[in-house]
């Protein structure tokens, strides 16, 4: 039985490495060709995982071949627009200037109910608010609302944002100091220790999480701290 465990682990690692080679984009949003690869990989890996009679290589080689094909196809689609259209298709504009493009809907085999459902999933409950709606190649709907229905932005009001931009830095994680993040935040250990002392925390090991936010303020939570509310 141990052999099954080892074979499963080998195939698991192969699939993980393969998915890493495919890249983050493919994991987040699947294009048609990527969906095909994902389905085929799961099937190819599971057969030699269960059957000891089948050599493990007959699972690994097809998985790697699919990944090679997928990466090459992605590379070609980056280089050539024709290839991109062939592999992933093109986005379809289904609402333009507030008018539904019936021809495009028919082509996509989308009915009005599907369209309204997709709009609701985009937090739009009134179709008259929509200026443009596009079905992306991944099948997701992108919507641009009419000017009057868009939310007010800070630039509309000519207001400068108060909050600084940038990342907050996790400098202590379960009592372990992340020195790289600490130096990126522009602070040092002496500053951290001073801040901990101000909150009566004598040892860094007692800290569950410490984050320096965009304003340079320190957020701390001690280990075992119970919500008193």
């Amino acid at each position: 039985m141990l052999i099954l465990v080892i074979r499963t682990l080998i195939l698991y690692l192969t699939v993980i490495i393969s998915m890493r080679i495919m890249g983050k984009r493919q994991i987040g949003e699947l294009q048609p060709s990527e969906l095909v690869v994902a389905i085929m990989i799961s099937d190819l890996a599971s057969v030699p995982m269960q059957s000891i009679d089948i050599p493990i290589l007959s699972g690994i080689v097809p998985v790697l071949t699919l990944i090679v094909a997928e990466v090459m196809m992605s590379y070609l689609s980056v280089k050539s627009k024709k290839m991109r259209t062939l592999i992933a298709g093109e986005p379809s504009v289904i609402i333009y200037n507030g008018h539904i493009n019936e021809g495009e809907l028919k082509k996509l085999r989308f009915n009005i109910n599907d369209l309204l459902e997709e709009l609701r999933l985009n937090n739009i409950f009134d179709i008259s608010e929509v200026d443009t709606a596009i079905i992306e190649t991944s099948g997701k709907l992108s919507v641009i609302q009419k000017e009057r229905d868009r939310g007010v932005t800070l630039s509309d009001l000519n207001i400068e944002p108060k909050a600084k931009t940038g990342l907050s830095r996790l400098i202590i994680d379960c009592g372990q100091v992340n020195t790289e993040e600490l130096s990126k935040s522009g602070k040092n250990m002496a500053w951290v220790i001073k801040k901990l002392n101000e909150q009566n925390i004598p040892d860094i090991k007692d800290v569950l999480i410490a984050v320096i936010n965009r304003e340079g303020e320190l957020y701390i939570q001690k280990k075992g701290e119970v919500d008193k509310k």
């Binding site: 080679i21 080689v61 790697l64 990944i67 090679v68 990466v71 090459m72």
Partner: peptide, 14 residues
């Protein structure tokens, strides 16, 4: 990087 890796894997497979 992934294209290079894919090319290497392809050569190894062939």
């Amino acid at each position: 990087k992934s294209v290079v890796m894919a090319a290497v894997i392809a050569v190894l497979i062939v």
